[in-house]
Amino acid sequence: MIHNDSKLGRRIALLRKEKGYTQEKVGDLLKVTPQAISKWEQGNALPDTLLLPPLARLFGVSIDYLLTGESLAGKAGPYDGEYRKENFYWGIQPSELAGQIIDILQGDTANKRLLDIGSGEGRDAIYFAKCGLQVDALELSAPGVEKIKRYSRLSGYAVNVIHADMIGYDLAEEYDVIYSHGSLQFLPPAERRKHFDKYKQYTKTGGLNAHLIFVEKPFIKLAPDWERNEFFFSSGDLAGYYHDWEILRCGEEIIDCDSAGIPHRHAVNCILARKI
C-alpha cells in the first residue's frame, strides 16, 4: 500500500517539471485527467498502484525512487569512475550486435520501441535512436546517465534515459526489441530465469531479443576489471532461455578487449531471437 505522503506529490511535481511536462501532458500519457495529476502533486490523492510502473518510466526513475527518493542514493555503478571522465570508456561506435538488429529490421523502425538494458554511456542507445527507434536506455550509474544525456544532446538524437537498477526493474509496456550488451552478468544467477521470462513476456509478437553475455571458460583468465558482483553464464544458457523462440543467431566466440587499459580476452555468447 502507498502511504499518503505529501513528499510523494512534491516528488512527482519536481520530476514532471524536470522533464518539461505539463500536468495535461502527463495526464494524456497516463490516460488520467490533469485534475488527478494536480491532486497527486498537492498530496490530496495518490496514484493507483497500477500507474506506478508507467509513471516511473515516464520520469526515467525506478519505482523505489518515485516512492522514497532514496533508492539509488549512494548506490554506485561499477564504472562510475570511468564514466565521469571526458572520454567514452566503451567508445561511441555501435556494437556488431546492434548493427545486426538494424539489418533485420530493414528500415522498419517507425514507432518501434527498444529497451537497452545497462546502456552504459549510450553508444548503442544513440545508434538505435539515429536509426529511428524509440529508445529507453536503462542505466544504474549516475555518471553513466549524465553521459548518455550529454551524448544525446551532442548527437541530436533523443533517448528516454531511465536511472534504475536492472535488478528488479519493473517493465510496464511491451517493446519491439529488448537488448543488452555485456551487462546481464550483474544479474545474480538465482534471478536470471525470472528476468529472462520478464523480457520475453514484455516483447511484442514478432519482436526481437538480443543479448551478449560473458561465458566462463577455464582457458580464459579473469578480466582485470571484473567485479565481485559479476557472475559468468555457462555455454548454452541463452539458447535454453529462448528455446521456444525462433533463434536467428546464437554463437560463441573469443574477443579481445583492452578495458581498464590492460589487454585481455573474453569468451562471449550472443543470441538474437524472434518471438513467434
Rank of each mutant, 00 (worst) to 15 (best):
Thr109Glu: 07
Ser38His: 10
Gly99Ile: 08
Leu8Gly: 07
Gly144Tyr: 04
Gln93His: 09
Lys130Ala: 14
Leu97Gly: 00
Pro143Leu: 06
Leu51Asn: 09
Gly122Asn: 02
Glu70Thr: 15
Asn44Arg: 14
Ser6Gly: 03
Trp90Val: 00
Ser95Val: 00
Ile37Leu: 10
Ser119Trp: 07
Ser95Pro: 07
Asp64Lys: 03
Val32Cys: 12
Ser141Met: 09
Gln42His: 05
Pro54Val: 12
Lys19Val: 07
Ala76Gly: 02
Gly91Ser: 09
Ser119Pro: 03
Gln134Lys: 13
Arg11Asp: 04
Ala45Ser: 14
Gly122His: 08
Gly132Phe: 09
Ala36Trp: 05
Ile101Pro: 00
Leu50Arg: 13
Glu121Arg: 05
Asp108Val: 08
Pro94Gly: 11
Leu15His: 00
Asp136Glu: 15
Gly132Asp: 10
Ile126Arg: 02
Val26Gly: 12
Ser119Tyr: 05
Asp48Val: 05
Pro143Lys: 01
Leu67Asp: 05
Arg57Cys: 04
Ile102Tyr: 06
Leu67Arg: 00
Gln23Met: 14
Lys130Glu: 15
Phe59Asn: 03
Glu24Gln: 14
Leu66Gly: 04
Lys112Gly: 11
Gly91Glu: 08
Ser119Phe: 07
Ile104Met: 05
Gln134Ile: 15
Arg84Gly: 12
Asp116Trp: 09
Gly69Trp: 02
Phe128Asp: 07
Leu51Phe: 14
Leu105Asn: 04
Asn87Phe: 12
Ala36Glu: 10
Asn44Thr: 11
Lys7Cys: 06
Leu114Lys: 01
Arg10Lys: 15
Ala45Asp: 12
Ser71Val: 03
Thr22Gly: 11
Pro47Tyr: 10
Thr33Trp: 09
Ala76Met: 09
Tyr65Gly: 00
Gly74Ser: 06
Asp28Asn: 13
Phe59Leu: 05
Asp48Ala: 13
Gly91Gln: 01
Ala98Ser: 15
Pro34Trp: 03
Arg84Ser: 08
Glu82Cys: 02
